[in-house]
Design a protein around this nucleic acid. Structure first.
Length: 798
DNA sequence: AGCACGCCGACT
DNA sequence: GTCGGCGTGCTC
């Protein structure tokens, strides 16, 4: 008897183990490790998907195993290296094997069980509820049943079947259908001749002649379009067996319209960088970090590296932070490698992503360009992974498993003897630390491509502005520069990492601040909707005319967001054409690209935006970048605040002066002496690293230790506190003395959507204690209202 | 996580 | 007596 051990698609901790199934006779030849199968599961045998992880022969066994219902695809979906990756993730990220496996597979291949029922006997004795259901059924044919809309449970249906009242057909339905096109071709040439010689059938004759002329298969839609005929003409020919229609699977084309992107001649620096990377790879170095200033031509280096591996028939993965934000990168890769490139990002429809995924796994696409999850792409013969802007926080998954893309990529290249290239102008402290320890090879590039030079950066102390009587959001320096830029017909980018109009609304008489009723945060005023909005739960409320607490009418708006900047710009610089890009203006699909192109084509003079405009965008005509408030990220209670501020400022500054004209950057701040602002202004990464790494060492923060962040949530505050303390006590007993446990304490945002939040942080190398701690937390929360999430080395401790 | 089973109170 | 609410325990 052949037994297959499978991992079922169920994220629950309770069943985080393999289950054995008998492989039926008809599947014995086809079944392989890494295949997706459908199995009956649980007492009611509902059908779910699973992945085969082991196949073994067993002579006799005491347990009666169930049989595998069917295979889900013809091919293996999880290659051996990806299976090993799943185990790696389970071991490192506090997640179940199922969570790991089903985040490696594309999410859209999920199955839905489909139940159909038919009435077979009307002589029944049933309950009212059952009778109501039976009245919907018919004797003649099976009807699809949606369990969520009827008042019966699965077991009730089975009971009806067992009593001989209905018959059931249980099957599965794949959520994402393959897209097919209809191809038309000649079937019978003699009959075709008859049609041509028959003068009465003018339209049919045209179709046949057209097909003969083309000499091969033509799509149905093409015939209809070109001959301006209808479907019925072709249908008639099909009925006469003159032509036949075949359905062929097509892949939805994700970036069909690309223009060829020619090979650029490389600069000496670029050539040296490539040689360095490849020779260190030959010497067994798996990882190279490129630290290159913004605008130094990293993409061209990536393109050449990919080409180098493609020439040897190896595949590559290129990761960029949230790809839709950088249409340029897609253009370049598609333009250079054409159909060999697959694109994977979050804004693809399910069908599109599924198609791209299969193009990859079948080896049709050799290169994938994508966001975070594309690191799992089943590239055939994978040898190269590139992570651009490697420091970006979007490379850390916020969902379970909370993997760091770089770790996954490193695991994969180590397994496949491949090469990992990390690129950034401001590498993460962790990565650069790996360089200093000799784990990574380093390539540094300090010159920009062509004539463009690094912009001149000015730091403006906003305290002086206020002291000099300037109450505007813009300093005099920034104001004058914007005006000058408008006069010279140059473009300006204004950056502020806060959306909305004002960040909080407060009463000047009693100090009351408008807060969300569901969350522990202040509400943001949005002028476009004239409401107060909660950025955590989305609640919108009307602005009070009078203070809800003291009844005074001195309600005032404090703090500026992008909406306010937009309004101020329009007020102060009348005639300037303004585009605002933030979550509110780019929510609609395609809106992001539209605004990007508008600005690129110089249809606007000033671009105002949040984080989303800080990376990847390349505007030649931008000579001025203004950072409205550099301190917004600096003062958060987070050990990475300085690093994030530095990175953000360098990235934003890099948007200026990418063309021939020298750029200018103005950074407004209330803390002009802070080292991350000072060093960002002169773009001195090395000095920043030296300062920052010392602080990390002193405070024992990553990369010197692991930080494990536990978030506990519940809508019952008292129980939450009790459980947290209990967990802390139990963990303290098992962990060695060199571990530090911080907390448990209420979270920075102590309540979201009426759910209370407490957190706890453990400092120390935790990897060997994961299972133990996981069990303690699981046991202590099991029969309570407390939910938890665990994150190893999170990007933010807030 | 589902889902069934089983025990207990409410109600035609 | 039957309906349904939720605590408990299992899933090859």
């Amino acid at each position: 008897m052949i037994i297959a051990s499978v991992c079922v698609d169920n994220p629950s901790k309770e069943i985080d183990r393999l289950f054995d199934y008998v492989v039926p006779e008809n599947l014995k030849e086809q079944i392989k490790i890494g295949m997706r199968v459908i199995v009956p599961f649980g007492t009611s045998n509902r059908l779910i998907q699973a992945v085969v992880l082991d196949i073994k022969e067993e002579q006799e066994c005491e347990i009666v195993y169930k049989e595998i219902y069917d295979i889900a695809d013809e091919e293996v979906v999880l290659s051996n290296d990806l299976i090993q990756l799943a185990y790696f993730m389970k071991k490192n990220y506090f997640c179940t094997l199922s969570e790991a496996i089903f985040s490696i597979l594309p999410p859209e291949v999920h199955f839905k069980e489909q139940i159909e029922a038919r009435l077979i006997s009307e002589n029944y004795d049933v309950s009212k509820r059952e009778a109501k259901f039976l009245s919907m059924l018919s004797r003649e044919k099976y009807l699809k049943i949606d369990l969520s809309t009827i008042n019966l449970k699965r077991s009730d249906l089975i009971s009806l079947k067992n009593r001989g009242i209905i018959d059931l057909k249980v099957g599965i339905r794949q959520n994402t259908s393959k897209k097919t096109i209809e191809l038309c071709r000649l079937k019978d040439l003699i009959k075709a001749d008859e049609i041509i010689n028959n003068n009465r059938l003018k339209q049919q004759k045209r179709v046949v002649e057209y097909l003969i002329d083309k000499g091969s298969e033509v799509t149905l839609s093409q015939i209809i379009e070109e001959l301006e005929c209808t479907r019925s003409v072709i249908k008639a020919l099909v009925d006469k067996e003159v032509v036949e229609i075949i359905e062929k699977e097509v892949y939805r084309d994700v970036a069909a319209d690309y223009v060829h992107y020619p090979r650029h001649s490389l600069t000496l620096t670029q050539r040296k960088a490539i040689e360095d990377i490849l020779s260190s790879y030959k010497n067994g170095r798996r990882v190279t970090l490129i630290r290159g200033v913004t605008g130094c031509g990293k993409t061209e280096i990536y393109l050449n590296l990919v080409e180098h591996f493609l020439n040897q028939d190896y595949g590559a993965i290129v990761l960029v932070p949230e790809i839709s934000l950088t249409p340029q990168t897609v253009e370049r890769f598609k333009g250079r490698f054409g159909d060999k490139v697959a694109i994977l990002h979050s804004r693809l429809s399910e069908g599109e992503r599924y198609d791209e995924w299969r193009r990859i796994s079948r080896g049709i696409a050799k290169v994938v360009v994508g966001a975070r999850s594309a690191v799992f792409a089943p590239i055939v013969n994978l040898k190269l992974i590139i992570i651009d802007e490697e420091h970006e926080y979007s490379y850390k998954s916020e969902l379970n498993p909370k993997y760091l893309t770089k770790d996954v990529a490193e695991f994969r290249v180590n397994l496949l003897d491949g090469l990992l290239v990390l690129g950034s102008a401001t590498p993460s402290i962790e990565s650069y630390y790996n360089v200093s320890k000799g784990h990574y090879n380093l390539v540094e590039i300090d010159e920009r491509i062509g004539d463009s030079t690094l912009p001149e950066v000015k730091i403006v102390d906003m305290r002086n502005e206020l002291a000099s009587g300037n109450k505007l959001i813009f300093s005099r320096e920034l104001y004058n520069s914007i005006e000058e830029n408008l006069r010279n017909n140059k473009q300006t980018i204004l950056f502020l990492n806060r959306r909305g109009y004002s960040t909080f609304v407060s009463c000047r008489q009693c100090g009351y601040v408008c807060k969300c009723s569901n969350c522990d945060v202040s509400l943001t005023y949005h002028i476009s909707s004239n409401t107060l909005e909660c950025h955590y739960c989305g609640q919108k409320v009307n602005v009070p005319n009078l203070c809800p607490k003291c009844g005074s009418k001195y309600i005032k708006y404090f703090g500026a967001g992008t909406e306010k900047i937009e309004q101020e710009v329009k007020r102060l610089f009348s005639g300037a054409r303004v585009i605002r890009m933030d979550m509110d203006t780019t929510r609609k699909k395609g809106e992001h690209e539209r605004l990007y192109r508008l600005f690129k084509e110089h249809k606007a003079d000033i671009l105002i935006g949040t984080q989303m405009i800080s990376k990847g965008m390349d505007f030649k005509n931008v000579t001025l970048v203004g950072v409205i408030a550099a301190d917004t990220t600096l003062n958060l209670p987070d050990f990475r605040a300085a690093e994030r501020t530095f990175q953000l400022l360098v990235q934003v500054a890099g948007r200026a002066g990418r063309g021939t004209d020298k750029g200018k950057v103005i950074i407004q701040t209330y803390e002009p002496d802070h080292y991350s602002i000072q060093l960002a202004a002169v773009q001195n990464y090395n000095e920043f690293y030296r300062k920052e790494i010392e602080i990390r060492r002193l405070l024992n923060n990553p990369p010197f230790t692991d930080l494990t962040y536990f978030l506990f949530t519940s809508n019952r505050e008292d129980e939450l506190i009790k459980v947290c303390k209990l967990i802390e006590y139990n963990i303290k007993r098992v962990l060695p003395k060199d571990f530090t446990i911080l907390g448990p304490t209420p979270n920075f945002i102590s309540k979201i959507k009426n759910t209370y939040r407490w957190n706890m942080v453990i400092k120390g190398n935790i990897i060997n204690y994961i299972e133990l701690i996981d069990k303690i937390i699981y046991d202590n929360t099991r029969s309570t209202s407390v939910k938890y999430s665990i994150d190893i080395n999170p990007y933010s401790l807030i």
